[in-house]
Each structure stands twice: as structure tokens, then as C-alpha cells.
Amino acid sequence: MKRETNDWEPKIVAFLCNWCSYAGADLAGVSRIQYPTNIRIIRVPCSGRINPFFILSSLQHGADGVLVCGCHPGDCHYLTGNYNARRKFALLQSLLEYAGVEKGRVQFSWVSAAEGGRFAELVAGVTESIQALGPAEKLVKR
């Protein structure tokens, strides 16, 4: 963390699917793996439940970044939720970048229930990259 140069800490909203990614975060917790406290987790039933509006609303209401996680392909509790979601996410991320929202504000990854360690690393990486981008200004409603 760049605390010495800057007191600002990013706020990152993380949407985690109930069955894999949230369980992955839970595993990180019960295993007492340390990771940055910048994320605010919102549990959703499935990555397929994520409406692109959730992501945009987060940015509108002051999140500096958004992380979206679901089960690995083939592992979705509802079989195909993540496959359908992946298409939406690909288009949304590309559209946001195209419109001039900084690359990296909105990130996606697959995290399984067994990947507690990986979840912690992911959060550390995402926090660092959003810290480097600085506060999100563009979609915030003032």
C-alpha cells in the first residue's frame, strides 16, 4: 500500500457468486489469509445474476473499482449462468473502455470454493491496480 505518499484508499465493490467465489472468500477468511480490506463484498446467487447496472451503479455511487467473480466454466451451480454472464461481461468491459472509462476499473475472474489463497492474491492484485489508477471520477454522481 502506498500509505506513505497518499492516505487515499480505494473502495472496491466485489460481486461474488454464492456457490464458488463467496465460498472462496470464506475459505480465505477461515484460513486467516490476510488480504486488503478495500473490498466490499456483495453476495449474489450466481454470476449470471449480475445485471450490468449493478456494476455501473457501483461506479455511479462512488466505488473506485468493481470486481466480479463466479465459478469456473463448467462449475456453475446453475450449469450455465457463468457462460451466459461471460458474454455480457466481455461486451460491457469493452464498451466501458471504449467510452473512456480507465482500463482496469472493472475486472472479472473465476474463483472456486477451494481457491482461498488465490482469492486473497486476486484481491491484492486488483486493489493495487485500482490504487494505481487513483480515485474514480468519471461515472460518479455528485
Partner: peptide
């Protein structure tokens, strides 16, 4: 957006 392929591009994701 009403369908998918198992091997749809996911290069946009973090270490997919």
C-alpha cells in the same frame, strides 16, 4: 446474448 459457447473468448478476464 441468449446463448454461449463453452470456449467463448475470456482473455478479458483476470487469469482466466
Amino acid at each position: 446474448l441468449a446463448t454461449f459457447k463453452p470456449d467463448d473468448p475470456e482473455g478479458f478476464m483476470l487469469n482466466p
